[in-house]
Each structure stands twice: as structure tokens, then as C-alpha cells.
């Protein structure tokens, strides 16, 4: 995983892309689960679960999908 030679001085921008625009996507799973209007209701029910419960469990997938996407898009070249 150490694609870089430690002897070569590296600038921050070349080896880690913390400034990538993809990182802005991370705000989606931070903001969306904190808007009660979206999930604070009973209908529609799924498998007997009121919306309040199933939708918040679905937000977990939203979080996973976003962090995975951002990770894949920003990871170093030369990594796996």
C-alpha cells in the first residue's frame, strides 16, 4: 500500500486528496438523517415497520454507499 518512496519529498496535494470535490458528498449522510420531516411518519409501512423505523434503517445504506463511493473516488493511484 506504500506506493510512495519515503525518500522523495511529497507535497500534500500529490499524495492525499483531502481536497477532492468528492468529499462534499459526505455531507449527504450527515444532513439527510437529521431532517425529521422526511422520516417522522407512520405510512407507508414496509413489512409492518412504520416509515420512521424502516427509513432510518435505510439511511444506514445511504451512509455506506456514500462513504464507499468517496473512498473509491479519492484513494491514491497505485493502490488497489
Amino acid at each position: 500500500m506504500t506506493a510512495l518512496d519515503p525518500e522523495t519529498p511529497q507535497t500534500a496535494s500529490s499524495r492525499a486528496k483531502d481536497h477532492s470535490p468528492w468529499n462534499w458528498l459526505l455531507f449527504i449522510p450527515i444532513v439527510v438523517p437529521l431532517i425529521p420531516v422526511l422520516f417522522n411518519a407512520d405510512s407507508p409501512r414496509v413489512l409492518g415497520f412504520p416509515r420512521f423505523y424502516w427509513l432510518q434503517l435505510v439511511y444506514i445504506l445511504l451512509g455506506v454507499a456514500t462513504t464507499t463511493l468517496v473512498y473509491q473516488m479519492t484513494k491514491k493511484r497505485g493502490g488497489r
Binding site: P29, P33, L34, Q56, Y59, G63, T66
Partner: peptide, 24 residues
């Protein structure tokens, strides 16, 4: 009841927050 379910959004929100900050 519902108030106790705060643990779910709480543990969703934390990971994108940590993703960048704790890497630094």
C-alpha cells in the same frame, strides 16, 4: 418509544464525520 431510536441517526452521522477528520 421513538426518542430512543436516536441511536440510529447518531451512528449513521458519525462515520462520514470521522472519515476525513480522524484520518488527519
Amino acid at each position: 418509544g421513538a426518542m430512543g431510536f436516536f441511536a440510529v441517526p447518531y451512528t449513521i452521522v458519525i462515520y462520514p464525520l470521522v472519515f476525513l477528520v480522524l484520518c488527519r
